[in-house]
């Protein structure tokens, strides 16, 4: 009986150890598999875009690429209402900096200089010069990409206090 009890205890212990080890191995393997699908270091490193805005005139729109997405940089003129919650101040002048992806389903809106609107062809969404929704299905304003200002240089992909202030107001 004693022998059997020990034998049972051993099998139970060994079985538990095997189960725990297998479960731990499974979790580690799943984590590893999850990590293989993460963006590669080269992809992450290519995720910073620098733009010099010193040569932009008022009312100019530039479209730059940031992380494979288009970004609108619009230097506001006097006819475009200031929007303290969204304006990015560079060298004392207001700019709209926004990811040019409709917040509805990811299409790229086009800037209409006459209407002073960003218009999305897919489902009719419209955004004003500050990127706020004025019409249609988009659930929120155009997203502001993480940015940092260095003089007249706009660095996309790095966060700053100014960026956090705008995001908190969004």
């Amino acid at each position: 009986m004693g022998f059997n009890a020990n034998r049972r205890g051993f099998i139970k212990g060994a079985g538990t150890a095997l189960g725990v080890a297998a479960a731990a191995g499974g979790v580690v393997a799943l984590y590893g598999m999850k990590r293989t699908w993460d963006p590669l270091p080269s992809v992450v490193a290519a995720g910073i875009t620098e733009v010099d805005v010193s040569r932009m005139d008022k009312g100019d729109l530039r479209r730059v690429e940031y992380r494979g997405n288009p970004v609108f940089i619009l230097k506001k003129d006097e006819d475009m209402a200031p929007n303290p919650a969204r304006d990015v101040m560079i060298n004392g002048e207001p700019y709209t900096v926004a990811i040019a992806i409709c917040t509805h389903l990811g299409c790229i809106p086009a800037w209409s200089p006459s209407a002073r609107l960003f218009q999305c062809a897919c489902h009719g969404g419209e955004f004003d010069a500050s990127g706020e929704v004025t019409f249609g299905p988009p659930p929120r304003a155009l997203d502001i990409p993480p940015f940092r200002i260095e003089g007249t240089l706009l660095v996309l992909g790095e966060e700053s206090e100014e960026y956090h202030r705008l995001v908190a107001q969004a």
Partner: peptide, 9 residues
Amino acid sequence: WIRGDYVVG
């Protein structure tokens, strides 16, 4: 994570 990139790539 699904895309492995910030955009479809």
